[in-house]
Design a protein around this nucleic acid. Structure first.
Lengths: 202, 202
DNA sequence: GATAAGATAGTAATCGATTACTATCTTTTT
DNA sequence: AAAAAGATAGTAATCGATTACTATCTTATC
């Protein structure tokens, strides 16, 4: 149990705020998360939030930076030391799914940011994140083709698109079922089909 | 050019409202569509909307009914008369993608509805739609296995999940690129990988 | 068939509620 | 005692919804 303290240093308070938003997004529509709800969830008054963030958008920016940093670190860690490109892709997939299962609000926040018409700072962060994610996938797929694990005729871009879309599909199913745990259960089964679609014929 | 008329019968006005919402959702975040924006887009005052719909949620309900009706009709039509289950799945995929390309706001509205925490009427409609969609996919996949087109070892549920997720992934890519046309271009390439993942080895 | 009467559809103004954000005062920490 | 962090109590803007009133269309009556 975390001992409850009222006064926190600014950087810690910002960190707690980000965690509060990520948690809230797991159980409610990200676009409906108000500053009052954030404050309430972390036992703070609404006005106090603006001691640490100039605007609400700055809160979202911090949240998306947190997501980008954690997610990329996690998939890099998962792929580290794995020789086989296909096995590395599987490790990335599973670690990504694990991340999503731990923080089910994350993909919903990301999708919500991408929907925004204006080009905001948090939206740009999400775009950069997915771009970097895509670069890693591209590299692995190329390596997989080179070493013969993946079909030489494979469409690299389409394979990367399908990789990310597969996770998005899992999220959608969990929203439908209202059950986050389902993601962990479905992920290996869905990835098996994806893998069959990209690897070279034996 | 449609001749502009001020007074419309109630049912026509409701139909025009639904079309206005679908159009607006194609270019802006569905959750940020206000009743004022809807009215403005159809050259009407905001208050007049409530002569035809009791609440804003009733508008969303009508929109989602429109979507469910059109989408199911379109995929049923696409699959009609096709003997091969795999070819029928491809036809459904492509007609669904074509529908999305024509109405890019549709999948975003659907995803947005699913995100809502409360069990609203429009949310239920989306859930029913995807359930019926899933039933059709299940049937086709079973038939495909029976006739030997699809791998006998295929996980039916996972294949259905991946089918819908694949389209969701295409939508996400188009949001990233800010380019709807991209969906038409990517769809056949992505489906090719999916198909390779589910069909029986030659 | 003209016209009165009612029904239907739309306007403009406004309401209460909610939102992000701010100014001022108080408490805690160092 | 100074500075940082939080509480309290606001503000202005926006949203969905309602209201009183007007315009138009439909129908029944003579």
């Amino acid at each position: 149990m975390n001992t409850y303290v009222k006064h926190l240093p600014a950087d810690e308070r910002r960190a707690v705020t980000v965690e509060a938003v990520v948690e809230l997004a797991g159980s409610q529509n990200p676009s409906e998360i108000t500053t009052a709800a954030i404050a309430k969830h972390m036992n703070l008054t609404q006005g106090a939030l603006f001691r640490h963030f100039p605007t609400k958008d700055a809160i979202w920016q911090a949240v998306m930076e947190w997501v980008a940093e954690r997610l990329l670190a996690r998939i890099d860690c998962a792929a580290q030391g794995i020789e086989s490109p296909l096995a590395a892709m599987q490790a990335i997939f599973m670690s990504h799914v694990e991340f999503v299962a731990e923080h089910p609000g994350v993909p919903r926040m990301m999708f919500g940011e991408l929907q925004r018409a204006e080009q905001t700072a948090p939206k740009r962060i999400v775009q950069t994140l997915i771009q970097r994610y895509g670069e890693r996938l591209h590299r692995l797929i190329q390596e997989g083709k080179a070493c013969g694990e993946l079909s030489a005729a494979l469409d690299t871009e389409a394979a990367a698109t399908l990789f990310i879309g597969t996770i998005q599909g899992l999220v959608m199913q969990s929203l439908l079922a209202g059950n986050v745990e389902r993601i962990r259960h479905d992920a290996p089964r869905v990835f098996a089909i994806y893998q069959r679609g990209i690897r070279s014929a034996q």
